[in-house]
C-alpha cells in the first residue's frame, strides 16, 4: 500500500479551507479509480481523502489478485467437496485420527548428495565392492579378493611367517593361529606362543621405534600423520586412535619408524610443532606397564 501525501495540485486555497473547518469536503475529492487487474493479477485502487490536518491525501492501493487453488478445480470437483460422507466415514469419531500430517519433513533425497551414496549400500553389498585398496588379506597378501577372515589359504599359511614377513599392521589378526584342529586353542597355547607371550602378543611388533603423538586435532587421519612424519625416514606404521562412535580422532596416535635415529630426529623436530592450530606433543611411546 502506497500513500503519497498531498501530491495533487490543490485548486482550493488552503487559507479558505481553514475557515470551513469541520465541514464535510468529500465532494471536492476526485472519484475513486480502479485500474486493472492486469494479466499479472495486479489491481490498483486510487482513493483520495482528507487526513486529520485537512490535507488532501491520495491513497494508492496495489493488490495482487491470485486465484486460490480451489478456484482451479472444476465445477464438479467443487460440488464433490460438499458430498456427504458414506460407508465407514459416516461414523468417524473425532479421535480416530485417520488422516495426519507427517511430523517429519520428508525431502526428495538426491542420490548425488555427498556421502549419501555410501550409506545407501546395504552392509551386504559393501563387502564385495569394498574397494581394492581397502581389502588386503593379511594372510596371503592378496589385494581386493577377500578379507583376511575369508582367506582360503588361512589354514595353509604358517602363522609364524605371518608375523615375521609382513610389515606390522595395527589390526590384530582375526584368524586364529594355524591350528589344524577345529577346537579352540587360546592364543597363549598356540604354536609360537613362547615368543609372543599372551597379552602383548600384538603389541610387541609395535614397540620398535614407536613414537607417540598427542594433541592431534580431531580431523587428523593416518595419511596426514604419515605425510608429517615421512620426511624423517621410512615409516613402518601409522595409527591414529579413532572414536568408534563419532568417527573423529581421539587426539593421539602412534608412528613407528624403521630406524631409531629417524625416530629421534622426528621427536626433536616435531615436539612442540604447531599442527592444525594445536601444539603437537611427540615423545617415545612408553611400553605399557602390566
Amino acid at each position: 500500500m502506497v500513500a503519497d501525501a498531498a501530491a495533487q495540485p490543490n485548486k482550493l486555497r488552503w487559507g479558505e479551507l481553514e475557515e470551513d473547518d469541520g465541514e464535510d469536503l468529500d465532494f471536492l475529492l476526485p472519484p475513486k479509480q480502479v485500474i486493472g487487474p492486469d494479466q499479472n493479477g495486479i489491481k490498483k485502487v486510487i482513493e483520495y481523502k482528507y487526513n486529520e490536518e485537512g490535507n488532501r491525501v491520495k491513497i494508492t492501493t496495489t493488490i495482487r489478485i491470485r486465484k486460490l487453488a480451489n478456484a482451479r478445480l472444476s465445477k464438479r470437483a467443487v460440488e464433490r467437496r460438499s458430498w456427504s460422507k458414506f460407508g465407514d466415514a459416516v461414523h468417524e469419531d473425532v479421535g480416530a485420527r485417520l488422516t495426519m500430517v507427517s511430523t517429519e519433513e520428508i525431502l526428495l533425497e538426491r542420490p548425488k548428495a555427498p556421502g549419501s551414496k555410501q550409506e545407501e549400500n546395504a552392509p551386504g553389498d559393501l563387502l564385495p565392492k569394498g574397494g581394492a585398496v581397502l581389502m588386503v588379506c593379511r594372510t596371503c597378501g592378496k589385494k581386493g579378493d577377500h578379507w583376511t577372515s575369508r582367506c582360503p589359504y588361512k589354514d595353509l599359511a604358517n602363522p609364524a611367517d605371518v608375523f615375521v614377513d609382513k610389515p606390522p599392521s595395527e589390526a590384530r589378526p582375526t584368524t586364529p593361529g594355524g591350528s589344524k584342529s577345529s577346537s579352540y586353542v587360546p592364543p597363549s597355547m598356540r604354536a609360537g606362543a613362547a615368543e609372543r607371550g599372551g597379552a602383548d602378543m600384538g603389541r610387541r611388533r609395535h614397540e620398535e621405534n614407536s613414537v607417540r603423538v598427542t594433541n592431534l586435532s580431531e580431523d587428523t587421519r593416518e595419511p596426514d600423520l604419515l605425510e608429517l612424519f615421512r620426511p624423517f625416514g621410512p615409516v613402518s606404521r601409522v595409527y591414529v586412535a579413532v572414536d568408534q562412535k563419532t568417527g573423529y580422532s581421539r587426539g593421539f596416535g602412534f608412528v613407528n619408524f624403521v630406524s631409531r635415529e629417524d625416530a629421534e630426529r622426528a621427536i626433536s623436530k616435531l615436539n612442540g610443532y604447531g599442527y592444525d592450530n594445536l601444539i603437537l606433543r611427540v615423545e617415545w611411546a612408553a611400553p605399557r606397564t602390566n
Binding site: A69, R81, W83, K85, F86, G87, D88, A89, V90, E92, L98, T99
Partner: peptide, 18 residues
C-alpha cells in the same frame, strides 16, 4: 475389504465402499 475414497487435497476420508 473396503476400498476407500479420500479428498486428494487434505486427505480427508470421504467414504468407504462396503
Amino acid at each position: 475389504h473396503n476400498p476407500t475414497v479420500w479428498f486428494a487435497d487434505n486427505g480427508e476420508r470421504l467414504g468407504t465402499y462396503r
